[in-house]
Protein backbone atom coordinates (compact mmCIF):
# COMPACT_ATOMS: atom_id res chain seq x y z
CA UNK A 1 0.00 0.00 0.00
CA UNK A 2 3.03 2.21 0.14
CA UNK A 3 4.93 3.80 -2.70
CA UNK A 4 8.62 3.17 -2.25
CA UNK A 5 9.63 6.45 -3.85
CA UNK A 6 9.94 9.56 -1.76
CA UNK A 7 6.50 11.18 -1.75
CA UNK A 8 6.75 14.33 -3.80
CA UNK A 9 3.41 16.05 -4.28
CA UNK A 10 1.32 13.41 -2.56
CA UNK A 11 1.15 15.46 0.61
CA UNK A 12 -0.74 18.20 -1.21
CA UNK A 13 -3.73 19.47 0.74
CA UNK A 14 -6.08 22.22 -0.38
CA UNK A 15 -9.77 23.04 -0.19
CA UNK A 16 -10.50 21.34 -3.48
CA UNK A 17 -8.88 18.04 -2.44
CA UNK A 18 -10.64 18.15 0.94
CA UNK A 19 -14.02 18.67 -0.76
CA UNK A 20 -13.36 15.79 -3.19
CA UNK A 21 -12.39 13.62 -0.21
CA UNK A 22 -15.56 14.64 1.63
CA UNK A 23 -17.74 13.65 -1.32
CA UNK A 24 -15.85 10.41 -1.83
CA UNK A 25 -16.63 9.41 1.75
CA UNK A 26 -20.33 10.32 1.83
CA UNK A 27 -21.61 6.86 0.71
CA UNK A 28 -19.70 5.23 3.58
CA UNK A 29 -20.55 8.04 5.99
CA UNK A 30 -24.26 7.36 5.45
CA UNK A 31 -23.72 3.91 6.93
CA UNK A 32 -21.66 5.43 9.72
CA UNK A 33 -24.74 7.55 10.47
CA UNK A 34 -26.66 4.32 11.05
CA UNK A 35 -23.91 3.19 13.45
CA UNK A 36 -24.19 6.56 15.14
CA UNK A 37 -27.92 6.05 15.54
CA UNK A 38 -27.27 2.60 17.01
CA UNK A 39 -24.86 4.19 19.48
CA UNK A 40 -27.33 6.93 20.37
CA UNK A 41 -29.99 4.33 21.07
CA UNK A 42 -27.66 2.07 23.08
CA UNK A 43 -26.42 5.03 25.13
CA UNK A 44 -29.99 6.10 25.92
CA UNK A 45 -30.67 2.55 27.08
CA UNK A 46 -27.58 2.74 29.31
CA UNK A 47 -29.09 5.77 31.01
CA UNK A 48 -27.07 8.62 29.49
CA UNK A 49 -28.64 12.01 28.96
CA UNK A 50 -29.20 12.78 25.22
CA UNK A 51 -27.13 15.99 25.43
CA UNK A 52 -24.13 14.16 26.90
CA UNK A 53 -24.45 11.42 24.27
CA UNK A 54 -24.21 13.93 21.42
CA UNK A 55 -21.33 15.77 23.15
CA UNK A 56 -19.51 12.46 23.56
CA UNK A 57 -19.80 11.60 19.86
CA UNK A 58 -18.71 15.13 18.94
CA UNK A 59 -15.60 15.20 21.15
CA UNK A 60 -14.53 11.55 21.18
CA UNK A 61 -15.49 10.41 17.64
CA UNK A 62 -14.47 6.78 18.13
CA UNK A 63 -17.39 4.40 17.69
CA UNK A 64 -15.99 1.14 19.01
CA UNK A 65 -14.55 2.77 22.14
CA UNK A 66 -17.75 4.67 22.82
CA UNK A 67 -19.81 1.49 22.59
CA UNK A 68 -17.41 -0.34 24.90
CA UNK A 69 -17.51 2.33 27.62
CA UNK A 70 -21.30 2.02 27.85
CA UNK A 71 -20.66 -1.21 29.76
CA UNK A 72 -18.84 0.83 32.43
CA UNK A 73 -21.65 3.35 32.77
CA UNK A 74 -23.55 3.29 36.06
CA UNK A 75 -24.15 5.62 39.00
CA UNK A 76 -20.36 6.00 39.01
CA UNK A 77 -17.76 5.41 36.30
CA UNK A 78 -14.30 4.04 37.24
CA UNK A 79 -11.87 6.42 35.53
CA UNK A 80 -8.84 4.12 35.27
CA UNK A 81 -10.84 1.30 33.68
CA UNK A 82 -12.42 3.87 31.37
CA UNK A 83 -9.06 5.28 30.25
CA UNK A 84 -7.57 1.80 29.72
CA UNK A 85 -10.56 0.58 27.72
CA UNK A 86 -10.54 3.63 25.47
CA UNK A 87 -6.79 3.42 25.00
CA UNK A 88 -6.78 -0.30 24.17
CA UNK A 89 -9.53 -0.01 21.59
CA UNK A 90 -8.07 3.12 20.01
CA UNK A 91 -4.45 1.97 20.09
CA UNK A 92 -4.79 1.15 16.39
CA UNK A 93 -4.79 4.92 15.80
CA UNK A 94 -1.15 4.90 16.92
CA UNK A 95 -0.32 2.51 14.09
CA UNK A 96 -2.39 4.48 11.59
CA UNK A 97 -0.59 7.68 12.51
CA UNK A 98 2.74 5.91 12.11
CA UNK A 99 1.81 4.59 8.65
CA UNK A 100 0.71 8.07 7.56
CA UNK A 101 3.86 9.75 8.82
CA UNK A 102 5.88 9.69 5.56
CA UNK A 103 3.20 11.90 3.95
CA UNK A 104 2.50 14.02 7.01
CA UNK A 105 6.18 14.84 7.53
CA UNK A 106 6.35 17.64 4.93
CA UNK A 107 3.43 19.48 6.57
CA UNK A 108 3.82 22.24 9.16
CA UNK A 109 3.19 20.97 12.72
CA UNK A 110 -0.28 22.49 13.15
CA UNK A 111 -1.51 20.93 9.91
CA UNK A 112 0.18 17.62 10.59
CA UNK A 113 -1.60 17.19 13.93
CA UNK A 114 -4.73 19.02 12.81
CA UNK A 115 -5.42 16.48 10.06
CA UNK A 116 -4.96 13.62 12.53
CA UNK A 117 -7.78 14.90 14.76
CA UNK A 118 -10.31 13.26 12.42
CA UNK A 119 -8.23 10.18 11.53
CA UNK A 120 -10.41 7.09 11.64
CA UNK A 121 -10.51 3.61 10.05
CA UNK A 122 -12.32 4.42 6.82
CA UNK A 123 -10.58 7.67 5.83
CA UNK A 124 -7.19 6.24 6.83
CA UNK A 125 -7.80 3.19 4.61
CA UNK A 126 -8.83 5.36 1.64
CA UNK A 127 -5.86 7.68 2.17
CA UNK A 128 -3.40 4.78 2.25
CA UNK A 129 -4.99 3.39 -0.90
CA UNK A 130 -4.56 6.74 -2.65
CA UNK A 131 -0.91 6.94 -1.54
CA UNK A 132 -0.39 3.40 -2.79
CA UNK A 133 -1.56 4.51 -6.24
CA UNK A 134 0.78 7.48 -6.11
CA UNK A 135 -2.06 9.98 -5.69
CA UNK A 136 -2.49 12.67 -3.03
CA UNK A 137 -4.31 11.18 -0.04
CA UNK A 138 -4.44 13.86 2.65
CA UNK A 139 -7.57 15.35 1.05
CA UNK A 140 -9.54 12.19 1.69
CA UNK A 141 -7.97 11.85 5.13
CA UNK A 142 -9.21 15.29 6.19
CA UNK A 143 -12.31 15.67 4.00
CA UNK A 144 -13.37 12.06 4.48
CA UNK A 145 -12.74 12.38 8.21
CA UNK A 146 -14.92 15.47 8.39
CA UNK A 147 -17.70 13.61 6.54
CA UNK A 148 -17.44 10.65 8.93
CA UNK A 149 -17.43 12.95 11.95
CA UNK A 150 -20.43 14.97 10.73
CA UNK A 151 -22.51 11.89 9.94
CA UNK A 152 -21.43 10.17 13.16
CA UNK A 153 -22.63 13.10 15.28
CA UNK A 154 -25.80 13.50 13.21
CA UNK A 155 -26.52 9.78 13.47
CA UNK A 156 -25.93 9.81 17.23
CA UNK A 157 -28.43 12.62 17.63
CA UNK A 158 -30.99 10.80 15.46
CA UNK A 159 -30.46 7.68 17.56
CA UNK A 160 -31.35 9.57 20.74
CA UNK A 161 -34.54 10.82 19.06
CA UNK A 162 -35.84 8.03 16.82
CA UNK A 163 -33.44 5.17 17.64
CA UNK A 164 -36.17 2.53 17.72
CA UNK A 165 -36.27 2.61 13.91
CA UNK A 166 -32.88 0.95 13.60
CA UNK A 167 -33.07 -1.29 16.67
CA UNK A 168 -33.07 -4.28 14.34
CA UNK A 169 -30.17 -3.18 12.12
CA UNK A 170 -28.21 -6.35 12.70
CA UNK A 171 -30.86 -8.44 10.94
CA UNK A 172 -30.30 -6.27 7.86
CA UNK A 173 -26.56 -6.81 7.94
CA UNK A 174 -25.86 -3.19 8.95
CA UNK A 175 -23.30 -4.26 11.58
CA UNK A 176 -21.16 -5.63 8.73
CA UNK A 177 -20.72 -2.33 6.88
CA UNK A 178 -17.37 -1.39 8.40
CA UNK A 179 -16.05 -4.98 8.27
CA UNK A 180 -16.93 -5.32 4.58
CA UNK A 181 -15.51 -1.87 3.82
CA UNK A 182 -12.18 -2.61 5.50
CA UNK A 183 -11.98 -6.02 3.83
CA UNK A 184 -12.59 -4.40 0.44
CA UNK A 185 -9.63 -2.10 1.22
CA UNK A 186 -7.42 -5.10 2.07
CA UNK A 187 -8.39 -7.00 -1.08
CA UNK A 188 -8.01 -3.87 -3.22
CA UNK A 189 -4.48 -3.29 -1.94
CA UNK A 190 -1.13 -4.67 -3.02
CA UNK A 191 -1.28 -8.45 -3.50
CA UNK A 192 1.69 -10.78 -3.83
CA UNK A 193 2.93 -13.89 -2.08
CA UNK A 194 5.00 -11.88 0.40
CA UNK A 195 2.02 -9.69 1.36
CA UNK A 196 -0.28 -12.71 1.67
CA UNK A 197 2.15 -14.41 4.07
CA UNK A 198 2.45 -11.20 6.08
CA UNK A 199 -1.36 -11.04 6.32
CA UNK A 200 -1.51 -14.70 7.38
CA UNK A 201 0.94 -14.00 10.19
CA UNK A 202 -1.02 -10.90 11.20
CA UNK A 203 -4.29 -12.87 11.21
CA UNK A 204 -2.75 -15.73 13.20
CA UNK A 205 -1.20 -13.40 15.78
CA UNK A 206 -4.45 -11.47 16.07
CA UNK A 207 -6.45 -14.66 16.70
CA UNK A 208 -3.97 -15.91 19.30
CA UNK A 209 -4.05 -12.55 21.08
CA UNK A 210 -7.85 -12.51 20.83
CA UNK A 211 -7.93 -15.85 22.65
CA UNK A 212 -5.10 -15.65 25.14
CA UNK A 213 -4.16 -12.00 25.73
CA UNK A 214 -6.15 -9.21 27.45
CA UNK A 215 -9.23 -7.92 25.65
CA UNK A 216 -8.73 -5.52 22.73
CA UNK A 217 -5.03 -6.28 22.32
CA UNK A 218 -5.48 -8.32 19.15
CA UNK A 219 -5.35 -5.49 16.61
CA UNK A 220 -2.08 -4.10 17.90
CA UNK A 221 -0.49 -7.55 18.32
CA UNK A 222 -1.52 -8.70 14.84
CA UNK A 223 -0.47 -5.47 13.15
CA UNK A 224 2.93 -5.41 14.87
CA UNK A 225 3.52 -9.08 14.00
CA UNK A 226 2.80 -8.34 10.32
CA UNK A 227 4.90 -5.19 10.42
CA UNK A 228 7.89 -6.92 12.01
CA UNK A 229 7.78 -9.73 9.44
CA UNK A 230 7.68 -7.10 6.68
CA UNK A 231 10.67 -5.35 8.22
CA UNK A 232 12.81 -8.51 8.53
CA UNK A 233 11.79 -10.00 5.20
CA UNK A 234 12.21 -6.89 3.08
CA UNK A 235 11.26 -6.50 -0.55
CA UNK A 236 14.06 -5.93 -3.04
CA UNK A 237 14.55 -2.20 -2.78
CA UNK A 238 14.18 -0.51 -6.11
CA UNK A 239 15.99 2.73 -5.53
CA UNK A 240 16.00 5.10 -8.40
Amino acid sequence: MLATDTPLRQHELDRHLVWIGFRQMVPIAVFVMVFGAAFGLAAMQSGLDPAWIVIMSTLVFAGAAQFATLDLWGAQVPMLALALTVFAINARHLLMGATLYPWLRPLPLARRYGVMVVASDANWALAMQAFGRGEPGLGVLLGGGLALWLFWVLGTWLGTQVGDLIADGRRWGLDMVMGCFLLAMVVGGQKNLRMLLIWLVAAGASLLAYRYLPENSHVVVGALAGGLLGMTWTEQSHER
Binding site: M1, L2, T4, R92, L95, M96, A98, T99, Y101, P102, D121, A125, M128, G179, L182, L183, M185, V186, G189, Q190, M195, I198, W199, V201, A202, A203, G204, A205, S206, L207, Y210, H218, V219, V220, V221, G222, A223, L224, A225, G226, G227, L228, L229, G230, M231, T234, E235
Partner: peptide, 18 residues
Protein backbone atom coordinates in the same frame (compact mmCIF):
# COMPACT_ATOMS: atom_id res chain seq x y z
CA UNK B 1 9.11 1.89 5.03
CA UNK B 2 8.81 -1.87 4.76
CA UNK B 3 7.58 -2.03 8.36
CA UNK B 4 4.99 0.63 7.69
CA UNK B 5 3.83 -0.95 4.41
CA UNK B 6 3.46 -4.39 5.99
CA UNK B 7 1.77 -2.98 9.07
CA UNK B 8 -0.81 -0.92 7.19
CA UNK B 9 -2.44 -4.01 5.67
CA UNK B 10 -1.88 -6.02 8.84
CA UNK B 11 -3.91 -3.55 10.96
CA UNK B 12 -6.95 -4.33 8.85
CA UNK B 13 -6.32 -8.06 8.71
CA UNK B 14 -5.84 -8.18 12.50
CA UNK B 15 -9.09 -6.25 12.95
CA UNK B 16 -11.01 -8.58 10.63
CA UNK B 17 -9.62 -11.99 11.66
CA UNK B 18 -11.65 -12.45 14.87
Amino acid sequence: RQFIAAMSGSVLVALLAP
